[in-house]
């Protein structure tokens, strides 16, 4: 190896280190905060690895009276919004791709450009008028603003790349369009559906702004519940960091497992919710 090549390699590794360390150090510090007693979290200079590990921080969060409810709320809202998003969005993506209605993608871009709060004012009034404010339905319905456009967007680009020959052959053989979709197009598009589902789940799970307005005491999702921990209770850092970690852990695990699909989905549509 020449000197120049060695220098090049060194420079590359310095860059990699500088880029990756803020992300790694942040999550390491987050774990450290969540596993320390108050006295260690207030120490100066800061302590990375405490002598005694405060597992109680997690126990405290998990057994606090409403955490289970909020966890179930998050799962119900994200689950229902993703499911409805797929049921509605996958056929729509298929239809739009086959109709070659590329222009409709503009509509989805506009939906993306609209600030979340401008959906909230009218829908908030509508939900109050309908008398469903104490339930999870307002949040499930408004999360469709996140899930439906993502699913349609990803499915359009996916169905546009799937080969048409099989579908045409099936149509010639007398299958209806629904049968073609159900038995020919959909099985081929399964990987695309998985990508759409993962992204819809992540964006819905992470959403905060809809919950902060629409959630009542019993209907909070996890991001809202964690936020309320700082504003109302004077909790110490340990349990707070533990709660924050519990909220985001499912998403981080999914990201690490399904990294390839997520990258494919994000670069295909280059979309983000919110």
């Amino acid at each position: 190896m020449s000197l120049k090549a060695i220098l090049d390699r060194t420079l590359l590794w310095v860059c990699v280190f500088l880029l990756v360390s803020p992300a790694v150090l942040f999550f390491v510090w987050m774990i450290s905060l969540s596993l320390k007693y108050e006295i260690d979290n207030g120490a100066y200079p800061p302590i990375l690895i405490p002598e005694t590990v405060a597992w109680e921080n997690y126990a405290e969060v998990l057994k606090s009276n409403r955490f289970g409810t909020y966890f179930i709320n998050s799962i119900l809202v994200t689950g229902a919004a993703t499911l409805i998003g797929l049921v509605v969005g996958v056929p729509a993506g298929y239809g739009l791709a086959r109709m070659k209605a590329r222009r409709t993608a503009m509509l989805i871009l506009i939906a993306r450009m609209t600030p979340g709060l401008s959906y909230l004012i009218p829908l908030f009034l509508l939900f109050r008028w309908m008398g469903i404010m104490g339930t999870l339905w307002p949040q499930i319905i408004i999360h469709l603003v996140l899930t439906v456009p993502i699913v349609i967007w990803i499915m359009i680009s996916y169905f546009e790349t799937t080969p048409m020959e099989l579908e045409e052959a099936a149509l010639i053989d007398g299958a209806t369009r629904w049968e073609v979709f159900r038995h020919v197009a959909l099985p081929i598009a399964k990987p695309g559906v998985v990508v759409a589902m993962i992204l819809a789940v992540i964006f819905s799970w992470n959403n905060f702004v809809f919950g902060i307005v629409l959630a009542g005491r019993e209907t909070r999702t996890l991001p809202v519940a964690v936020y309320n921990m700082i504003s109302y209770d004077q909790v110490s850092w340990g349990p707070l960091a533990a709660a924050a970690l519990i909220v985001t852990l499912p998403v981080l695990v999914v990201t690490l497992i399904a990294q390839r699909q997520i990258v494919a989905g994000l670069t295909a549509g280059a979309v983000k919710g919110g």
């Binding site: 905060l33 905060f208 991001p223 964690v226 924050a244 985001t248």
Partner: peptide, 8 residues
């Protein structure tokens, strides 16, 4: 989750 990392 943005709120979780904002806390930290």
């Amino acid at each position: 989750t943005p709120v979780a990392i904002a806390l930290v």
